Amino acid sequence: MTLVDAAVYVDGRRVASGTAAEALTEARARGGMAWIGLYRPDAAEMNELAGLAGLHPLAVEDALKGHQRAKLERYDDMTFLVLQPARYLDATETVEFGEVHVFAGPDFVITVRHAENPDLATVRHRLEGRPDILAHGPYAVVWAVCDDIVDQYQPVVAGVENDIDEIEDALFSGDPAVGKRIFGLQREVIDLHHATTPLVDMFDRLQQIVLESSGAAEAPAIRDVDDHARRIVTKVEGFRPTLESALTVHATLVDQENNEAMRRMAEFGLEQNEQVKKVSAWAAILFAPTLVGTIYGMNFDHMPELHWSLGYPMALGLMAATSLTLYVVFKRKGWL
């Protein structure tokens, strides 16, 4: 059911409820205001409501498509706002974003939610307890919705700030998951930046619209929300360079670890190479007497050295000479 609530307010008090069409008709008949709350309406419902309230086609198209950046558009005597509320999820340490569209006309306010957050029923209930505020008309509702959304940014900013502090503490711990966490936080901060940065200009323009429509000299309530939004934007803008610095430090630490690993591998390779040299040298030294012994161990009949009285000493001398020569050669080359 996309219609959450539709009510008529006269002098700030709720006097009737019904369908969206009934609320609009009753509000105009009584000279009051209709507040219609919708949750993910389809095209047929939005187009029907657009015909009844005289909504601009471009604003209706944006409301149907969703996934819009925060903005404020003015169409004749109707104001259209797109807001991106956020909430911090402690369980997953992530930020969840929603989307709210607000149509404000001379005698109606239409709020369209595309996510569970924020709970506009609570905002309505709170305003209904303050008929003195609600009596100011549609822009009192716009103020209340904007104020609620901006207030919800406070715990989000605090949660992100705490996550950044944790990352700064974990940078030198050697945890390989730190890099992934930094990238995740950067994405959240970018989304938060997109959601909050346009608010300053939006609320400046909204103040002018309220002053023009009411004829008042000032709009302190909107200015207060504007001040809160400016503080939020300043905080969020400070997160990005902090995360960029953390990412640079992390990349430097990873490079240092990789360089250290490469150095250890090079040292191990050199050490292994020295061992191979020693083994190879001793194998060559031992191979020389083995070769001599193998030759004279074949016992052929026609081997003069076998019947020579100096044959045995000669074989031993040859073995010793070749081994000693190879030892001296390898020793000079540093293999032994």
Rank of each mutant, 00 (worst) to 15 (best):
R124D: 01
R124W: 01
L83G: 08
V142N: 03
A158T: 15
F80Y: 12
M78A: 14
F108W: 11
A86P: 08
E116D: 14
P85E: 10
H101N: 12
R69L: 09
H101V: 05
A86R: 06
V141G: 03
A70E: 00
V100L: 12
L120Q: 04
G129T: 06
T122E: 10
L72I: 13
A140K: 07
D107Q: 13
M78S: 11
L83D: 01
V123R: 01
A140R: 06
V150I: 15
P118Q: 05
P106W: 08
G137L: 00
F97R: 08
Y75L: 02
F80D: 08
R74N: 07
D151W: 12
W143K: 02
E96F: 09
P155V: 11
E128Y: 00
D90Y: 07
I110L: 15
D148W: 09
R74I: 14
E96R: 14
E73R: 08
D147R: 02
V157C: 13
L120P: 04
D148K: 12
R113I: 10
L81G: 02
P155L: 10
D148F: 10
V150L: 12
L120R: 05
L81Q: 00
H136Q: 13
T79E: 11
Y153G: 14
V100H: 06
A140M: 04
A86F: 07
D90M: 08
R126F: 03
Y75D: 02
H136Y: 09
D107Y: 04
A104D: 06
D90W: 04
Y75C: 09
P85K: 09
D107C: 06
E128S: 08
L134E: 07
T111G: 06
A121E: 14
A121H: 11
